[in-house]
Design a protein around this nucleic acid. Sequence first.
RNA 1: GUGGGCGUAGCUCAGCUGGUUAGAGCACCUGGUUGUGGCCCAGGAGGCCGUGGGUUCAAGUCCCAUCGCUCACCCCA
Length: 421
Amino acid sequence: MIHKFQSVKGTKDLLPTETPRWRELEETVHKFISRWGYLEIRTPAFEPTELFVRSSGEGSDIVTKQMYTFEDQSQTSITLKPELTAPVIRAYIQHNLAKQGGTTKLYYIDSLYRQERPQAGRLRQFHQFGVEAIGSSNPEQDAEVIALAYLILLDLGIEDLELYLNSIGSVETRKRYRKILSGYFLEHEHQLSNVSRERLHKNPLRILDTKDKKEQTLLSNAPKIYDYLTQDDQDHYEAVKHHLTELEIPFIQHDLLVRGLDYYTRTTFEITSSKLGAQNALCGGGRYDNLVESLGGPPTPAIGFAAGIERILMAQKDTRTGEDKPDRIYVVCATENARDFVLKLTMDLRKQGLPVEFDALRRSLKAQMRDANRLKCTFAVIIGEKELDSETIQLKNLTTSEQKTVQLGTLITYLTKELKL
RNA sequence: GUGGGCGUAGCUCAGCUGGUUAGAGCACCUGGUUGUGGCCCAGGAGGCCGUGGGUUCAAGUCCCAUCGCUCACCCCA
């Protein structure tokens, strides 16, 4: 028995039943984001492993356990991209996009790869769209990016959006806060769950994310990062909130929101939908003012977000777009000796831009008619011996069941006039 | 990596406490029309019941293992 292949765990085929929804989403993304002045960028599927280690952080989960890493034939360590900010910034530096002046505003729609255990809303190959606005450190830029994320999700028809906002300050602030926080939790270590106790040493900030109800009171008394922000950080944060309020973008301050990647500074945000399962984040993003420099570029502030396409598709209310297909034509072969002519006529009609089907299975007339019906064709062009002899065709309207004889010479003019295409 | 649930026809599923040739709906094919679809009627094809082992006179059904899918933890989009 021959072994049947299956798609690799955590990967999915998009069948013709679902590709229309993907296309529709992608078109919306292209249109919406370009209107805001962002330009599309496409980066390679893989990058030097070191790029992700340097940007995401050596201790981050992505780097320690989620990357698809391999050595190519020249023993270079290669990694399938697990996130998109680093490759975009790499390209930005490599091609010196800054030289164009102003801010550099880029967007992408792309595939990512992370080796995690799949579950609802989480795959090993998945898709995101996102933007990176590179060059401005000002709060208006934060507001623009956050507004873009929020409004595009609204436009995509997602209900129950919740936007969570936080500021985690500079890298130094975070280091200082981290120390204070672990001090606090160390004092109360006996009240911590096993998971949290582990995090205490790896990354105490993550304890703030806990879902353990028993720890909630402990958390509410924990030192808040806001109190450790510098005056500049606070001013920036306040300005971002002010802008969002002005723009009528509703947000929820969430001082426990910390992100998994090391490169974030100041603003972080996340948008969730209650329509999703446990993996309820549709979109995550934040400011990363040190990344460009740490990847070898000039000191350059930047902010961006990435949104998960699979999750958006899950959260969308099922707006089955019954996009009206153009009227299709089925050229039916009624007798064997008409076969050659059927193929030729099919091609002639297609050359006129008409959407035309024919039967390559040599099925019976009846079967062809059934097929035409199954394919929701609006016209059947029937050709048999009689028609060959008289240079006519039978034209049957499959909606009204009317049938008439049409001169072959006038068929194309007739069809192009009759059909809404 | 850890835990729960589930694997029966192309799809959605039924199959009670183990007992004859394993079922339904939808989809598919043929016929009812010597050259005509949709509805209807008649018929048909399609299953090593995920895989391997065990218990038993007898296993889709019980036990063990294994693989796969799925949900959750971890983490994140």
